[in-house]
Amino acid sequence: MQNFPILPREMAASLWRNRDLIAALVKREVIGRYRGSVMGLAWSFFNPLLMLVIYTFVFSVVFKARWGVGVEETKADFAIILFVGMIVHGLFAECVNRAPALILSNVNYVKKVIFPLEILPWVAFGSALFHTAISVGVLLLAQLILSHQIPWTVVLFPLVLLPMVFIAMGFAWFLASFGVFMRDVGQITGVFTTVLLFASPVFYPLSILPAKYQGWLQLNPLAFIIEEGRKVLVFGQLPDIGQWGVMMVVGMLTAWAGFAWFQKTRKGFADVL
């Protein structure tokens, strides 16, 4: 039986070696999602815009929530700050929720020895990243219209997201493998990402929590990414490089652990399917 390499360098080598195939599959998936709809890809723009309006109304009008960024804080300010958290959580949640079904929905690839199954999580991530980029575009457009300015630090947002990319990929490889052997995993991930939505500073800033809870919440990797994302996208502040470095190490270790598990267990996929 074939043994698949699990070294960290193979994780990067596989991505580079199959980059054209990944790009083609991502393009096919994005286009296929909206094929047959009247508005087509325009839905990828209107969906985040609609969610932004709904969440803003519910939290700033119905619940009269405030972020506490100043006495002159407006509903638009609250909406923009809230939207950053939604974007980050949405990217992670889409990758995790789709992961358990990646192999099950591509059984024909399992039979092909030459097909690199390890790229399927990258394809799912690429599709999610496309929609995240559209959402960020909506966010920046809203800032430009409402605040008449966009901080230069927005160029650092991809850097802030990088640790979460590795963490999401690690989870995706783990769950893609578990999903083959345990079909209930898909139900668990939906609950997990919903809990994570409220256990992350999406609807509130970390600073409003009692100190004894802040430490626990900071163990959630999304907490750092969301808070630092707001710094660079909204407040025009530089990210905390020290904590970012720690998160990068955590992210790379998570990604490699997930990749190694996937490579070790993929030999049994064909037998189960």
Rank of each mutant, 00 (worst) to 15 (best):
Y109W: 07
V110Y: 01
K112I: 12
I114N: 11
I114H: 07
F115Y: 09
E118V: 03
E118G: 12
P121Y: 03
F125E: 03
F125M: 15
L129P: 11
F130L: 08
T132K: 01
I134T: 15
I134C: 13
I134P: 15
V136S: 04
L139Q: 05
L139E: 03
L139H: 07
L141D: 04
L141F: 13
Q149Y: 14
W152I: 14
L156W: 09
P158C: 12
L159C: 10
V160Q: 02
V160D: 04
V160Y: 08
L161K: 01
A168M: 08
G170S: 06
F171Y: 12
A172R: 02
W173Y: 10
F174A: 10
S177D: 04
S177C: 14
V180A: 06
R183K: 09
G186F: 04
Q187A: 14
I188T: 09
T193A: 03
L196I: 01
F198T: 09
A199I: 06
V202T: 01
Y204F: 10
Y204P: 01
L206P: 04
I208H: 15
L209H: 10
P210V: 05
W216R: 00
Q218W: 14
N220S: 07
I226K: 03
E228R: 03
V232C: 04
F235V: 10
G236E: 11
L238F: 15
P239V: 10
